[in-house]
Structure formats: C-alpha cells, structure tokens
Amino acid sequence: MKTVFVAGATGYLGRHLCRAYRERGWRVHALVRSKSRPDLPLADLHIQAEATRPETLRGVMAGADLVISALGITRQRDGLTYRDVDYQANLNLLQEALHVGVPHFAYVHVLNAGRMPEVPLVAAKSAFVRALQGAAIRSTVIAPSGYFSDMGDFFAMAEAGRIWLFGDGQLRINPIHGADLALACAEAIDAGRDWIDIGGPDILSHTELAQTAFAALRQPARITRLPDWLRRAALAVVPHVTPSHISGPTQFFLTAMGQDMVGEPHGTRHLSDHFAALAVGEQPS
C-alpha cells in the first residue's frame, strides 16, 4: 500500500485530498498542528508538527511515496507572513522530503501566478515553485482557478441585495469544488504531469457568476458595474492604508478580478448547486 503525506490537511482542499486518497486505497498521513482539535481530517495517521519549525518535521515523512502540500495562508495570523508559510514552511517540507528520499512532491499553487508577481501571496508561492522545480525530486504543480469556497464573497453581496463588479463583467472564471480538485490532483499526479492549470466544469463570466448567486436566492439580479480604474486605484492604495492581514487577500482578489481565471475543466459539481445549498442554509462540504 502506498503512503501519501498531506500538508495543509486541515484546510478546505487538504481535507478533500485526504478523503480522495483514502478512497483510492492509499495510506494517508496528515500533518496537523494539534491532534486535540475536534475536526481532524480523515486519515490513517495524524502527525503533529509545525511546518514553520523544521526541527518538528524530522522523520515525519519517512516511508512516504508522495508528499502533497496544500499549505498556505489566505489571512495572515500569529504574526506569520506569506513568506513565512507559503514559501519557507513549504521549503522546510521539501527539504525534509529530500532528506528522507520521498520520490515525488506535489504542490498546490495558483492559476496565472506569472501575471501577479506583485501580489505578496502569489510571490511567496511562486518563489517556492521555483525552488521545487530546481530540486532533485519529481514534482507536480497544480494551479487551480479558484475554489467554490472563494465564491462566498459574491454570494454574500447577493444576500445583501447588490453585487458590485469591475469593468464590463465579461472576464471569466471556472471555480472548482474541493472534491473535484482533489480527484483532478490525484489523476494529474498519477499521469506524471509536471504542471496542470485546473478549473471546474462551468466557465462563467463575472456577470453570469453574479446572476447565478441571485438565482439561487430567487431574487432579481441587481448588479452595479464600476469602472476598472477604481480597481486599479484600490490596488495602489490598499497596501498603504490597511494592515497586512487585510491588504494581502484584498490585493489577490482585486488582481484576480482583473483577468480571466480559467483552467482546464475538470469535475462534475456545479457552482449553481453550491449557491443553492448556501441559499437554504446548508453548509456545503
């Protein structure tokens, strides 16, 4: 039986990765910061360690056939920066994998990273990808367009009665459900792909995305389109007037909103169903 070591196992995608590999017959070792938390991911073994502290990682990957890291922060906390986690903590994982001879390391990146070098979150991830690709290990980089869970901001605006868009609303995105992404990751790794841009099955313009949220709420679509120069102006100002835990995700969101975010379509789950579940108060997986 093969063994996969999952870092970032308690996050949205990490939980789906643990489940997907269990269902594929792999032994799953999940890295967690604390074994005492009540919502541990599905795994054969929970390994308590902190990727930001390399001394806690010694030996934890011994015998693993594959390491998958979905480790990263979307909102800075505990005084940690994107450089601390998205770059250095993943580098710590990579160095330990190399030390114990793990043959394959997969990493969850972000789509269109090359077009967002000025965004701190993306810059940290890209720095790690360069280190991974230069290391003496087989690697797979998975770059998703966005998760269903990320679309909650659109749904929240719809619930408040109006969705605000930039430009003409015709830029496109195909976000993907975590379970579909986990399966696509496993298939890409099995196929020996070194890089894959991944999205969900439905390619939607921002206007269509907004309309989907209102349709789930059974409300008329109230959409206001703002000139795109306001988005660009906000990008220039936000880092100087907000703390990093706010400016970081805001910079990423505003930058991503200014381009198509469309990956290779995968999966069977639809955003309309996700929004419909939210509309009736269900907590989607």
Score class of each variant (00 low, 15 high):
V100K: 12
A97Y: 01
P120Y: 08
A124V: 14
L98W: 01
E118H: 09
H99W: 12
F105N: 01
V102Q: 07
L121R: 14
V110F: 07
N112W: 09
K125S: 07
V122L: 02
V119R: 00
V108Q: 00
L111E: 03
A123I: 10
F105I: 03
K125F: 06
P103R: 04
A123L: 10
A97F: 04
H109Q: 09
P117W: 11
A113G: 10
P103W: 06
V122N: 00
F105M: 05
G101F: 05
P117D: 07
G101N: 07
Y107K: 03
G101C: 09
L111D: 02
A97S: 08
L111Y: 10
V110M: 04
V100Q: 09
R115I: 11
R115Y: 12
L121W: 15
H99Q: 14
R115W: 05
V102A: 03
M116A: 14
H104A: 03
L121D: 03
P103C: 04
P120H: 06
L111A: 06
P120K: 05
P117A: 04
P117C: 10
L111S: 03
H99C: 11
K125L: 05
A124C: 14
N112Q: 08
V100W: 10
P120E: 04
A106L: 08
G101D: 07
R115E: 13
L111F: 13
A97H: 07
R115K: 15
L121T: 12
P120T: 15
F105S: 01
N112Y: 05
V110T: 07
V108C: 06
A124F: 15
A113P: 00
P117T: 08
A106F: 05
V108S: 01
P120A: 02
K125T: 13
A124L: 08
S126E: 06
A124H: 13
H109R: 11
A97M: 07
L111Q: 06
Y107T: 01
P103K: 09
F105V: 00
A113R: 04
V119M: 03
V119W: 02
L98T: 08
G101A: 11
